[in-house]
């Protein structure tokens, strides 16, 4: 979740009155430089070494394209699920009071707290043909493990918190008077939701789904357990980068990694822009 856009600049009056500018600036820049920027620069340099032509060849090779297509499709499926499930959960948790609500609320953070490898292990065991879920699905001819559905389920699980947790606070802060007014005017509950509530939560909702999508694209730990790594079919892009690495194909690995970073940056920019829109709406200038 990006806070970049919501941070307003301190007023000019305060400038440099407080101590610690040099210290924190030096510390932060050094740290960010060494820990975050340097490795990313190493990747970019490696990518630049490849040359644009070869880079394009790698990225548009059938296997890379298939991996990217699978990753994006599965992430879209996962995000579609979380868009519905997340909205439902946010709604239920904010609008209703019932026994076990707090427990249900706490459950929303489990996918975040649980290491992805553990999630992958558990989901694979549950959905494999002799697992609890797989045993029910298999007779119906549905196989999950080693298919795109498995990839999507792993992605969906690990990105559950994002939609819920971005929509929840907005829904909580929603001004009740507009709803009251709409009801007085004879609007149906569905009309109230679609005309009053939904437009109000839409920016947060979009941010949440964008982050969930970005997170799904990069998911690795949970996916590799359940995906089956079949080239052209169930091989996600981040795994392909690792496979290229293991084949000593550094250029291939760097090119695919860079592509993924670029997609992530675009999504980050998108969510920052949405956040700026949101801030503008909530705090009129």
């Amino acid at each position: 979740m990006s806070v970049a856009a919501v941070i307003e600049a301190p007023t000019r009056r305060q400038k440099r009155v407080l101590p610690g500018f040099g210290l924190t600036m030096g510390l932060t820049l050094t740290y960010v430089g060494i820990i975050v920027l340097l490795p990313v620069i190493a990747l970019v340099l490696k990518g630049a070494e490849i040359g644009p032509l070869r880079f394009w060849e790698i990225v548009t090779a059938p296997r890379t394209l298939a991996a990217l297509r699978l990753t994006i499709t599965a992430a879209a499926l996962a995000t579609a699920f979380n868009a519905l499930y997340g909205l439902l959960m946010a709604w239920v948790l904010v609008r209703y009071r019932f026994p076990g609500r707090r427990l249900l609320d706490a459950m929303m953070d489990i996918p975040f707290a649980l290491p992805t490898a553990v999630a992958g292990l558990a989901l694979t065991a549950l959905f494999s043909e002799n697992g609890w879920y797989g045993a029910i699905l298999a007779p119906a001819g549905i196989s999950v493990v080693y298919t795109i559905w498995g990839v999507a389920i792993a992605m969906a699980f690990t990105s559950i918190p994002f939609v819920v947790r971005t929509v929840q606070p907005i829904l909580e802060d929603l001004d009740a008077s507009q709803e009251e007014a709409a009801r007085t005017l004879g609007a149906t509950p569905f009309q109230i939701f679609s005309r009053v509530i939904f437009p109000a939560i839409l920016p947060a909702y979009l941010i949440g789904t964008t982050i969930a999508f970005a997170r799904s694209l990069g998911e690795f730990g949970a996916v590799i357990f359940i995906a089956g790594n079949l080239p052209m079919k169930t091989e996600v892009a981040s795994l392909l980068a690792v496979i290229r690495l293991e084949e000593y194909d550094y250029n291939g690995a760097a090119a695919i990694a860079l592509t993924l970073v670029a997609i992530a940056l675009v999504l980050l920019a998108l969510s920052n822009w949405l956040q700026a829109q949101l801030t503008r709406r909530r705090v009129p200038a």
């Binding site: 970049a4 941070i7 500018f21 690495l245």
Partner: peptide, 29 residues
Amino acid sequence: ARFTFPGRKLLLTIIELPFSISPIIAGVC
């Protein structure tokens, strides 16, 4: 939070960058 300086927003974006980069890609980096 306490100071204004050129590149402040950029710095914030860079600080948040690791959230957007798949951990496995971070390893590759």
